[in-house]
Each structure stands twice: as C-alpha cells, then as structure tokens.
Design a protein around this nucleic acid. Structure first.
Length: 571
DNA sequence: GCCGTTTTCGGCCCGACTGTTTTCAGTCG
C-alpha cells in the first residue's frame, strides 16, 4: 500500500509541475487520473507490478505502467527528479493559493524571480506585482487573501464537520421564503468522506434578494464573489457557493454540480456519441433543449437509469446504468440495529437504558452493548465482575422492553501477538464479540496482517471493528493487507465493520466494494459513545452506498433471528 | 499520456466570473 501512496503523490506532483511549465493539459490530466486511480483502489499496487497487469487498470497505459515499475524498483522517477530541478518547490506551493494558477505563477517567476511564498507575500503587500501585465491592485489583494486563507484552512475536512454547516445554510436560505427549491450538491450530496467546499443550488424569482441574504449569513467571514447567478463566501473557514437556476434546467444543474467531475465527463462522452450536448442548462440537440427539468429526465433521455449521487465517481456506474443493471443500494431504513455501542461501563457517557430508548426511537429491532475489554485502561475497560453486572442489567432491560433485543457484547482488544484480551469463559457468555486493534499501530504490514488474522480466526469473534484504524485527517491507517484479512473473514464467518463515526468511516467505500465482491458481510456500526451518536448511522450508510452495498451485503439489515444465526456461526 | 461501435491519430467537458483589458486570459468548478 506504500507503493499506491508513493505513486499517487509523485503523479499528482508531476501533473502540477507540467502545469507550471505549460505542458499539454491533457497529458497532465492523464497523470492526475492515474494518481486518483491508484490512490483510491483498495488493492495493493505492488501485486499489479509483480503480476505485470498494471495496464489492466483504466487510465494506465504503457508509459505510466513503466513509470510505476520504475518507482517500485528505485523508489522514485528520473523524469520527476528532473522536473523538480527545473521548477523551484516554492512554485508548487503557490499552486494551492486560491485564485492563483500556473500562468500567473510562471509570470511571477519569470519576470520577478520570486520562488517562495514569503517573497510573494512581500511583493504583493508592497504593491510590486502590478507591474506585470494582467496584474493589478485587485490581483495583489486576492493573492494576499488567498495566502491568508491557506494559512487558516486545514484543506479537506471530514464530512461530519461540514455537514452541520451545510444543513444550517440550507435552513437559513429556506427561511427567507424566497426560494422554490434548495439543494446541497457537490461532494456532500455524494457523501464523500472529506469535503473542501459547500455547493448549494436554488430556484427563485428573486435572485438579487437571495444573494443579498446569502452574503449576510451570520457566520460569513469573507465575500469572494457576488453576482446574480453565482455568489461565493467563506463561512466557518469553508468556501460556500450558491447558484441560481430556472426550474426547466434545474435537473441538469443538479447533475452538473453534484459531480463528480469524472462522472460528468463520462456522461458527456455518452452525449457526444448520441450527437447531444450536456451542460448545466440542459441536454441539447443542436439549439433545442431536449431534457433538463429533472436528473431523471436527463439520464433517461440518454437511455440510462438514474444513478444515485453516491455512485457518481466514474467507477463503472455509467456503463452499468446504460445496461439497466444498477444495484439497489442500501437505505437508512434497511438498518435494523447497531452492533457497536459504548456505555458508562467503559468510556461511554450514557446508561444502557438511555441507549436502548434511543434505539427504540430509531425503530431498531436489536442493539449490542459492546464496552471495551480490560487492557484498554484509558477507556476504563471491563473486568469480569463488571461483565457480570452488565449481563444482569441487560437481562432486566430485555424483560422490560419487548420491542427490542439487547445483546451482550464486548469490543475486545487484539493484543500485539493476536490473542484476545478476554478470558475464554467470559467470551463464551457474550452474544457478540467485536475484535479491534487499539495499540502498537506502527507494526509492519506482515506482522499486523498476521496479528489480525489470528484474532479473527478465534471461533468467538463476529466482527472486526474499524479494520484499518484510520482517523480522518488525524491518523493514517496502520499497514495491513486488507484483502488477505477479508479472505479469512469470509472463511471464518466474520463481518467487516464499516465504522460509521465520521472521524473514521473505516472500512472505506472502496473496501466495501471489495468486501461485496468477495462475499464478506459488512456490519455498519456507529461505535457510539453517547445516545446521540447513534445518529452517525447515516454516515455509515452513505459510505456503504458509495461502496455499492445492497441490503443483502449488510449484516445489521438482517431480522433478529437470522442475525443470531450469523453470530452463532450456523451455516 | 490515454484511448478506440466516427480505432492507431486526433480527439480529450464546458460555461461563469474576475480583473484586467479594450476584446480577453486566467482560474475555477
């Protein structure tokens, strides 16, 4: 997996370097696409090198395959090193300043010899950039603002952090009473795990008034642009774009601004094959608009099924929609319970009964209480005595509440040697056993894979929790061969968790697809530490939908008795 | 640099906004 990251990083950088020296833009797109491909695939690129099948990957041809092999052999790429010699590294940094692109950066470098951010900032502040053609006082101001924004912003943010802002903005716009429709689109609608801006579309008869209201949103920090059709602000450190459209083209606009860019390009290719043109104002044959009021209308005119936003990543969904073979994705309503929840018995904040009441309100048929095993002292792990008390309390609750079945479980630590941090006799009285790595993250790939495989091979283990251990934007996954782990999981009747906490989303959507293809069950669990966090389920379901999962692929869509069968490993 | 039911060359998505310019280039999504 190290190779995937390395190749992606080098290819992304090459794309930027080529951009800076004004190379063929399509060549640079090819590098970007290849980088995106290897970055998002769950399989190890090394396998593709060893089996000499790199060219099977879409977007990777003869040349790029050779370059990947060179990176595999030597750890770097001659062409890349040479490019870096030619272009000062400070120019690459400048590429991330919003509003500043390759052409202007090249000019700044060629004419003024500026090579670092600091120099650039100094020149802009002193008004010394305006001597360049195409530069004026406003450009200098925007460069300064851009640098300022860069210093403040943290790049892509977890969806869970941005979604509340998006929801509040939608409410704020709706409350104006001026809009007929309002939708949050972009990567948020696609439920991408991290987002870097918020895109909102509206239908309105009073565009000027709605834009005025928009830029006066209480959290606004800066107004970047304000027009009748489009305005942009920075709010809570995030860029928010608002666009106004007419009703007759609203579907085309939704499609266009939901993206992804790659999906749009693919759909446009289909249009071209049919002699049609698609933009945000509709689907056109010549001058005539033939569709556009709804997404449904556009897709169906092209002979395709409507594609759920979460699938729109150009990962084969367009071809399948053309054949009418799209999977029926799992819905939040399909979820019948939550199998990973903490209470006051370890590091949770709520009593079991509070959790159970919340679960009932969500319409769940079952819920598993899974506090930490003893070795996780920081999380006040369970002792044998505490398990006994918990079992008694759960029995009492089960007698009191007939609508729901409360299961006794435990999140058992996988120790460094792959053994479970729980005595056998305790394991034997649990309904659900979740195994998880919480220590020694820096272990080598081979050792970590063996450690996890040993743990899930224990006959009592039902679910592998947060299988890669990543924390979005905080901590990388540990090194593990997830494909090998899944093969064993399949064989042993163990489910892979899709941890729905927005900090984790682990396994990710690509791994969900891998699990589905391998026939491994996925359990979507919230890992809630309070009753409110049971609502994290929607992040998990969104990620599962991005991984093309259907109801049948997800453990906690099963009815109670069939779930118990799985947990007892009845075949 | 990739790719092929307009195949081995010649395409590769397309429009809005800004700031500069005096008709458009650069940047963005």
């Amino acid at each position: 997996m190290v190779l995937n990251k390395k190749v992606a990083q080098i290819f992304y950088e090459i794309a930027q370097l080529l951009d800076l020296i004004g190379d063929n833009p399509f060549r640079l797109r090819a590098y970007e696409r290849a980088a995106m491909r290897v970055e998002s695939m769950p399989e190890d690129l090394e396998e593709y090198v060893l089996q000499d099948k790199l060219e099977e990957l879409p977007g990777i041809g003869k040349d790029l395959a050779e370059k990947i092999k060179e990176i595999y052999r030597t750890g770097t790429l001659k062409q890349y090193e040479e490019l870096k010699q030619k272009v000062p590294s400070g120019l690459l940094e400048m590429m991330s300043i919003p509003g500043l692109g390759p052409k202007k950066i090249k000019l700044i470098y060629d004419k003024l010899g500026i090579t670092t951010m600091e120099e650039l900032e100094k020149y802009a502040r002193e008004g010394r950039l305006r001597s360049l053609s195409g530069f004026g006082p406003k450009t200098e101001e925007n460069i300064l603002k851009g640098i300022e924004f860069l210093k403040r912003s943290k790049g892509r943010l977890p969806l869970g952090q941005v979604l509340p802002l998006a929801i509040d903005l939608r409410r704020y716009i709706e409350e104006s009473g001026l809009v007929k429709r309002v939708d949050v689109v972009g990567s948020i609608r696609r439920f991408k795990e991290t987002v870097h801006d918020v895109d909102i579309l509206v239908v309105t008869d009073s565009p000027r008034e709605i834009m005025d209201r928009f830029v006066r949103y209480p959290e606004v920090e800066e107004i970047i642009a304000q027009g009748e059709k489009k305005s942009s602000i920075i709010a809570s450190g995030v860029q928010v774009d608002l666009r106004v459209f007419d009703e007759e083209c609203y579907g085309a606009a939704l499609l266009y601004f939901t993206g992804s860019k790659e999906h749009n390009i693919r759909v446009r290719q289909v249009c071209i094959e049919r002699g049609l043109k698609l933009n945000e104002y509709g689907l056109f044959r010549g001058e005539k608009r033939v569709a556009g009021a709804s997404e449904q209308e556009v897709y169906s005119y092209l002979g395709m099924q409507w594609i759920p936003p979460e699938m729109r990543e150009d990962q084969g969904e367009v071809e399948i929609a053309l054949q009418g073979q799209l999977p029926v994705l799992i819905d939040l309503e399909d979820i019948k319970g939550d199998l990973h929840i903490h209470t006051v018995y370890s590091d949770g904040t709520d009593e079991i009964e509070t959790i159970v009441k919340k679960a009932i309100s969500l319409g769940y048929k079952y819920v598993a209480i899974t506090d930490h095993s003893p070795s996780l002292a920081v999380a006040k792990g369970m002792t044998v005595e505490k398990v006994r008390r918990q079992a008694e309390e759960i029995a009492r609750i089960n007698r009191r509440y007939s609508k729901i079945r409360v299961l006794l479980g435990m999140e058992v630590d996988i120790l460094a040697d792959g053994t479970l941090d729980c005595p056998e006799d305790v394991l034997n009285c649990l309904d659900v056993v979740i195994a998880a790595v919480h220590s020694r993250f820096k272990m080598g790939r081979e050792e970590m894979t063996n450690r996890i495989i040993k743990a899930i091979s224990h006959p009592k283990v039902n679910i592998l929790a947060h299988p890669t251990g990543r924390l979005l934007g905080e901590r990388d996954s540990y090194e593990v061969d997830i494909e090998r782990v899944m093969r064993v999981a399949k064989e042993k009747g163990v489910a892979m968790e899709l941890n729905a906490s927005p900090r984790r989303l682990d396994i990710n959507s690509e791994m969900c697809r891998m699990a589905k293809e391998m026939g491994v069950m996925v359990a979507i669990n919230t890992d809630a530490h309070s009753h409110q966090q049971l609502d994290y389920m929607r992040f998990g379901v969104g990620t599962a939908r991005r991984g093309w999962l259907e109801k049948k692929d997800v453990l906690n869509t099963l009815e109670s008795d069939r779930l118990m069968g799985f947990l007892r490993k009845e075949r």
